[in-house]
């Protein structure tokens, strides 16, 4: 598949969970389109930086979340609401859910069938990756506040 088509498909597919989870979080209907656009942008940007830019997944996540947050702040100021109202739903497609569950299941499996170095490695690798990606997402979303809006509120 050519690179552009891959990124485009990734963006369109990622917009679906951004909207789906925005509805779980009861984001007002008027803001759902922002969730979709920011979700698409963030996930495709991360895939591009990681697969084609050769950046480690965690750093790509940090950058993508930072960009989503910057865009979110612009919309937040015109829409008059806190940016987290839509930026958190927008980064939901990047949440490392599979890694988190795999790590916990490896813990259960160690208890059930006994210790093996492979299971232990699985637990550590997935758990650490989940931890660092979640940290990158949260810090990425906080970046504009930490660097630019230091002493004044965004909205």
């Amino acid at each position: 598949m050519n690179t552009f088509l891959l990124l485009l498909q990734d963006a369109l597919v990622a917009a679906v969970p951004a909207v789906g989870f925005a509805m779980i979080f009861n984001v007002p209907a008027g803001a759902l389109k922002y969730c979709a656009m920011a979700g698409a942008l963030g996930h495709a940007l991360r895939l591009g930086l990681h697969q084609f830019g050769g950046m480690p997944l965690e750093w790509a996540t940090l950058l993508a979340a930072g960009v989503v947050s910057m865009v979110g702040i612009q919309w937040a100021q015109t829409w008059r609401a806190h940016p987290k109202v839509f930026t958190v739903a927008a980064v939901i497609p990047m949440i490392p859910g599979v890694h988190a569950f795999t790590a916990l299941l490896a813990v259960v499996e160690i208890d059930r069938t006994g210790y093996t170095p492979e299971l232990f490695a699985k637990m550590m690798e997935n758990g650490l990756r989940a931890f660092f990606i979640v940290a990158a997402l949260a810090v990425g979303l906080a970046l504009p506040g930490l660097l630019i809006y230091r002493r004044r509120p965004v909205v």
Binding site: F21, F25, V88, V91, I92, I95, G97, V134, A135, L137, A138, V139, L141, A142, G145, L146
Partner: peptide
């Protein structure tokens, strides 16, 4: 996802 992100951003702030 929301509690996880809130957890880290609370601690960062």
């Amino acid at each position: 996802g929301y509690p996880l992100i809130n957890a880290v951003s609370d601690m960062v702030k």
